[in-house]
Amino acid sequence: MANKIKIDKLSLFLIPIGIAVNFIGGQIALLLKLPLYLDAIGTIVVGALCGVVPGIIVGLVSNVLNSISDPITLFYAILNIMFGIAAAYLSKKGVFKSFGKTLLSSLLFALIGGGLGSLMTWVLYGFDFGTGTSSIFAIPLHETLGLPKFLSQFIAEFGMDIFDKVLTVIAAFGILQAIPTRFLAKLPLGKIYIKDADLALEDED
């Protein structure tokens, strides 16, 4: 990974923080009894601040470490990797600078998590419902409304993911706004988040 593609030192030290935050987000959600994953905040923050490669590494390693206790999560690593890539792309486009655009970006993340996630579940569980919380909603949709199984799984996962990703991007937005300018200036994509007033001050100096 890091020996082939050069990653600057500060990004390298931010990667383990991002991975840990992915875990802790889920942990706090559990402590607060929230029926959400909140396990992509670290990937999105690191992807937005450090670029595609660190974002991918955070996503991949988070799932590898998660697979220690639940190996099936290894198959879902592709979702977290795509969150990292999407975060870096959206960050370069300046999406995370505006609260409205950040909220809208949750749709894309939910589409990856819910859409691609339901497809993964569909294949992994032999074209049937999975074992996640979403199945609790998917089965009644199939049973009572008579919707096809895949559509029920998709609606349930996307519906759950949209709430999850709204909270995730709000948290990521708050963090990106709160990071000191001095620190942002040293990160590959950090300059995007330096406020114009701070840049003007820098120019005056």
Partner: peptide, 10 residues
Amino acid sequence: FFPTLGPLLL
């Protein structure tokens, strides 16, 4: 969730 995660991550 936010007042817990914010100080932690920053």
